[in-house]
């Protein structure tokens, strides 16, 4: 797994112009200050992508398993949007610009959005309908990003500060933000990974799981906390990014089958790979400019959503 992650970082850097040269430079001494600057930008960015990818993928895997909903993921269900909105508010209204300051807003936003979407999407039906949940998430995301957009246009001063929170970007997100969020995300990952066994049991049904000695409440609470921290942390770094958390767990399940332990572990590896790939694509598609990576993930991930909804069997997790 570690080897794969390493390869993905290398692949992530190579397609970039001068990539081959830079790779050598990164391995040896950075002689040229120009190239060194590029590396200084690119390496933090790749690290950010890896962290965000891992967090989103594991959050998606947890959500899908917990809600038994194959369409669940932080982006589609509006958790990322809620988190990004809270950060945008922290910046625009309270003037907080340090990552250490707004990470708490991000977590709070993620939690509120999770509850709100669950209430809107599942209210009164007893069972939670996957499609209704997605609609609720999409509606919530539309409202929140609309408000951010309106704020951005009404006060161009905040233009640059808010753009990330509208579409999801990795450009210019420095190492400082990632490092601030990283401990929290690592902690959440440590909580999430051991949950695989109890999630496996939960998949057999609540009653059976309870009789097998799995604490339903404890598993759910831990999983929701982990999802909140992972999705919120990812959004604090890169803004709302959809579809990564959707695609990765499905790919993992495709390889590993229904065993949640392996789905979680594989998600942890595939997430960074996909995210770095999307970020490289974001830079290559409109070279020498670049696209917000959130849009690239939509471009790649939307067909997966269409495929999933067409496969009726996939809807019953």
């Amino acid at each position: 797994m570690a080897a794969l992650a390493l390869i993905s970082v290398a692949v992530g850097s190579r397609p970039v112009p001068l990539g081959a040269v830079l790779e050598i430079l990164a391995g040896g001494e950075a002689a040229d200050s120009d190239h060194h600057a590029v590396m200084g930008l690119r390496v933090p960015r790749t690290i950010a992508a890896a962290v965000v990818g891992a967090a989103l993928a594991v959050a998606g895997a947890l959500m899908q398993s917990l809600t038994r909903n194959p369409l669940a993921e932080p982006g589609l269900l509006g958790v990322s949007a809620g988190s990004a909105f809270a950060v945008a508010m922290a910046i625009a209204v309270f003037g907080i610009t340090s990552a250490a300051g707004y990470i708490w807003f991000a977590l709070f936003g993620a939690l509120v959005a999770t509850v709100a979407v669950a209430l809107i999407g599942g209210m009164g039906t007893g069972r939670i309908d996957p499609i209704r949940l997605v609609l609720a998430g999409v509606a919530l995301s539309a409202v929140l990003s609309g408000i951010i957009g309106a704020l951005r246009l009404s006060d161009p001063q905040t233009f640059n500060a808010l753009q990330v929170w509208e579409a999801g970007m990795l450009a210019g997100r420095g190492l400082e933000i990632t490092l601030t969020v990283l401990p929290l995300i690592l902690l959440a990952l440590l909580v999430a990974l051991p949950l695989g066994t109890s999630l496996n049991t939960l998949a057999m049904g609540d009653e059976l799981a309870a009789s097998l000695g799995v604490s339903l409440v404890r598993t759910r609470v831990l999983a929701i906390l982990a999802i909140t921290v992972l999705a919120g942390g990812a959004a604090a770094i890169a803004g709302p990014i959809a579809f990564i958390g959707l695609m990765v767990p499905h790919a993992a399940r495709w390889i590993a089958g229904a065993d949640q332990r392996w789905v979680l572990r594989l998600s942890l590896v595939f997430g960074p790979v996909l995210m770095i790939f999307a970020d490289v694509l974001a830079r290559l598609l409109v070279w020498p400019g670049e696209m917000p990576v959130g849009l690239v993930s939509a471009l790649v991930g939307a067909p997966v959503l269409v495929l999933l909804i067409r496969r009726r069997k996939a809807l019953r997790l």
Partner: peptide, 11 residues
């Protein structure tokens, strides 16, 4: 139709 629409819209 709606979910496919959401996906196509995003793309």
């Amino acid at each position: 139709l709606i979910i496919v629409g959401i996906g196509v819209t995003a793309a």
